[in-house]
Structures are given as C-alpha cells and as structure tokens.
C-alpha cells in the first residue's frame, strides 16, 4: 500500500513516537488526523504539518471514550474522504510494584492500587481496542484499503514494576493475529493489522530520565543507544508499504538483550 495519497489517523500524535509517525507520514505524502489529549501539542503539530506543506486536522480526543473514538474517526473521514492508516500510539505508564514490604516487619506496607492499574488498562488496551474497532468499521463500510497499527512494547516480555503496562502491551501485541483471523473469517480482505513493539525510544520522557539509568539501559542494547522515534516511524512506513507483513507484531529495539546477551 502506498503512503502517498493515503489518509492516516494517529492517536497520541501530539508528541513522542506519535508525533514522529505523523511527520513521517506527511513527509511521504499522507494526509493525517492528529488525535491527542493535549490541545497545545495538537496545535503545534498541525502548525508543523502546515509548515511542511502537508494536510492535517487536529482533534482532541480521549481514546477511552467511545464517543470520542467515533468522533475522531468521523472527523478524519469527513475531512479527507477516506481512512487508510490508523496508528494507535496513545499510551501511558504508571509504574508500581505489586507489593511493597516494610523493611522492619517484612509485612506488606503498600500494594498497587486501582489508581495505577485501571488508567493504564483503559488507555493502552481499551483505548487501542476502541480506536481500531471503530477504524475497522469505517474501513469496511467505506470500502477503504487499510492497515491498523497497534503499538505494543518490548516490555510485553514482562518488565518488573510494570505489571499494568506490560499486561496491556502483551495484549496489544496479540491483537493483529486475532483481528486478521476474524477478518479472514468474515471475508474482509482490505484491512491488514501489524503491531509495532518499540524498544527504549528517545522520546522526551525517556531522554529526560536519570542519565545513569539511561546508560544502564543502553548497555543492554546491542546498538548501544536508544532508538529514535523516527526509526519507529520508518518501521511503520515499511509495514504499510510491504503488504506481506500482516497479522504480526514487529519488534524494533536495536537488539535489546537480557544480561548475558540473550535477546529479549
């Protein structure tokens, strides 16, 4: 599928990986709907797209709301007349251990609360489900050729301190297989689903981490550095253009390894 002339929608498109994906797609000739929770970020990215000579709309939306997902899918189709590429990159982290023990008594002093668990599931899993479900509906009803891209993470392998986040990302990684299987059963040939599982990526959030912690992370990456958001965007671009890639989740990590050199 060609990027040029396609209509794309990117959730979480106001910063980080989502913003890089928006700009990569615009640079390669796509029209883009930018969805985010932060109006200032939306305004900035739409202005950047205009400066690039591209076409874009900005829609503030909460991916956990059915009303909002319906709204931004409709806005994209109304603005551009089609919907071909949907990248569900909206995501959050709220890291916490399941249990914290009191050092003196050895008893549980704190446990992961629903305030850490539920929002992460809502945004990363339910939000991705709603976005891709409504996008698939628009693609089927409109007869648009398309690709759905859930964003997983290399931490789908299971990262301590991220019981919530890792649980959502392993589920997101599974979506392509189930969805494409169902599309085959239902006779829907025009929609592919390809997940992307980034490794540690140089988003403002990660790049701003403690530098010693960053060094320790990079020491486990064969490439020896963080992945750039643009490299994730290029991987998505390749998945869009190469139609043989389907019903799978691609890892883009630079070779992230466990201690001792076994690749994650």
């Amino acid at each position: 599928m060609e990027i040029k002339g396609s209509v794309a929608l990117v959730t979480g498109g106001g910063n980080g990986i989502g913003e890089a994906v928006v700009k990569y797609l615009v640079k390669n000739g796509a029209k883009v709907a930018i969805v985010d929770m932060n109006q200032k970020n939306i305004d900035r990215v739409v202005a950047d797209v205009k400066a690039m000579g591209g076409e874009a709309i900005g829609v503030m939306g909460n991916v956990t709301s059915e009303a909002d997902t319906a709204k931004f899918i409709k806005a994209a189709v109304d603005a551009f007349g089609a919907l071909n590429i949907v990248v569900a990159s909206a995501g959050i982290i709220k890291d916490s251990m399941l249990l914290t023990l009191d050092k003196e008594t050895g008893k549980v002093s704190r446990k992961m609360g629903l305030d850490k668990w539920q929002p992460v599931l809502d945004v990363n899993l339910t939000g991705t489900f709603l976005t891709l479900r409504d996008a698939a509906e628009a693609m089927v009803n409109g007869g648009f050729k398309g690709i759905l891209v859930p964003i997983s993470s290399v931490n789908k392998a299971g990262q301590v301190g991220q019981l919530n986040y890792s649980s959502t990302k392993v589920a997101d990684a599974l979506l392509p297989k189930i969805m494409v299987g169902e599309f085959l059963m239902r006779g829907i040939p025009n929609i592919r689903v390809v997940g992307i599982a980034p490794g540690y990526t140089a988003t403002p959030m990660v790049a701003g981490m403690n530098q010693d912690a960053l060094k320790a992370i990079c020491a486990d990456v064969h490439l020896g550095r963080l992945i750039e958001p643009e490299e994730i965007a290029r991987a998505i671009g390749h998945a869009i253009e190469n139609e043989a890639i389907n019903a799978t989740t691609l890892e883009v990590t630079g070779g992230l390894c466990y201690k001792g050199g076994i690749a994650k």
Binding site: Q39, D43, V46, K50, I57, K74, A75, D78, A79, F80
Partner: peptide
C-alpha cells in the same frame, strides 16, 4: 489563532468548502 486544520478540500468550490469546514468543526 490555533490551526484546527490545514490544506483541506483542495479544488472544492468555495461555498462547498466553507460548508464542509463548518460541518467538520461541529464534528471536532
């Protein structure tokens, strides 16, 4: 002053484009 959309409805007649823009604003 904030851009909601850029580069839309190229080649569409002025009145149609304005009507589409108003409808799009109401959706967004």
């Amino acid at each position: 002053n904030a851009l909601v959309a850029a580069g839309l409805f190229a080649g569409v007649a002025d009145a149609d484009a304005e009507a589409k823009a108003v409808a799009l604003v109401k959706t967004i």
